[in-house]
Amino acid sequence: MSTYVFDTTHTNIGFVVRHAMITKVHGSFTDFDASFDPDAQTATATIKVNSLDTKNKDRDAHVLSGDFFDAENFPTMTFTATSTTLTSSNQGTVTGDLTIKGHTQPVTLDVTITGPAEDPYGNTRLGVEATTTINRKDFGIDFNAPLNTGGVLLSEDIKIIIDGSAIKQ
């Protein structure tokens, strides 16, 4: 077994949401524990919701409130892989249970692995890129506001993007 732990200083776990029907807002989480074992085909992640950063403190406070993540009552989000499928030597899918705000739904991530590479400190690293799109309402996040020009403030679809480096343990 080869367990890899994501290096938080070289990994971004983020999301993108359509805002005001004309642009996109990006956010990321800076405090998380995530690991995977490609041989055993396992993966887990725990993300501390309060580590949210959308580059706007007022927006962060609102997104952490009960309108969205309700971080006071649901301080973490989790992911646990339930199956993996390889489509080539470095690409595949990872399906698992994602829990946000107390709601658990199955999601499938499209994954690309690069490497291995040895860093200057003798660590063996793999690069990981993973994406999926979820409907935020499936996770109890249904805040929205109508726009005077028609439509709503936020899209229901949220793109999740993981781009990182993981170190072999």
Rank of each mutant, 00 (worst) to 15 (best):
L64G: 00
F36P: 08
G66S: 12
K55C: 05
T42I: 13
A61Y: 02
F79Y: 12
D67P: 06
N50S: 13
P38C: 05
T76S: 06
F79C: 03
S65L: 02
D53K: 13
K24R: 12
F74S: 09
P75R: 01
T80N: 15
N50D: 10
T46E: 13
I47A: 04
D37S: 04
D31R: 04
S65C: 05
F68I: 05
T78I: 08
T42V: 08
H26R: 14
F36R: 07
N73A: 14
F36K: 02
S35P: 15
T44D: 14
T44C: 06
L64M: 11
V25F: 09
I22P: 12
A71E: 00
V17I: 08
M21W: 11
D33H: 09
K55Y: 08
F68A: 04
N56R: 07
V25P: 07
V49H: 00
P75E: 03
A40V: 00
D53I: 12
A43S: 10
A20Q: 07
V17K: 05
F79K: 03
V49W: 01
L64F: 00
D33S: 14
A71V: 05
S28Q: 06
K57R: 10
T78K: 10
T42C: 09
D58M: 12
A20T: 12
M21I: 01
D60W: 10
D33R: 08
P75C: 08
S35Q: 10
L52P: 00
N73M: 05
D33F: 15
T84P: 06
T44I: 15
T23C: 11
T80Q: 12
G66M: 14
K24C: 03
D33T: 15
D67H: 07
K55N: 14
K48F: 05
D70S: 05
R18C: 06
T54N: 08
P38D: 06
G66H: 02
A20L: 15
M21G: 14
G27F: 09
S35W: 10
T23M: 14
T46P: 13
H19K: 11
D53E: 12
K48E: 09
V25E: 01
D60M: 03
D37K: 15
R59I: 14
A40C: 07
T80W: 04
M77L: 06
A20V: 04
F69K: 10
T30F: 03
T23H: 11
T76Q: 00
T76I: 07
V17C: 00
K55A: 10
A81T: 04
L64W: 02
T23L: 13
T46N: 04
T44Q: 13
V63A: 11
T80A: 10
A20K: 06
F69M: 09
S28N: 14
K55V: 14
H62A: 03
K57I: 11
D58S: 12
A45I: 11
A81Y: 10
D31P: 11
N56P: 06
S83I: 08
D31C: 08
T23Q: 09
S83K: 13
A34C: 00
M21A: 13
T84E: 07
T84D: 10
P38W: 12
T76Y: 00
A40M: 07
A20R: 08
D33V: 11
A43P: 11
S83Q: 07
L64K: 04
F36Q: 02
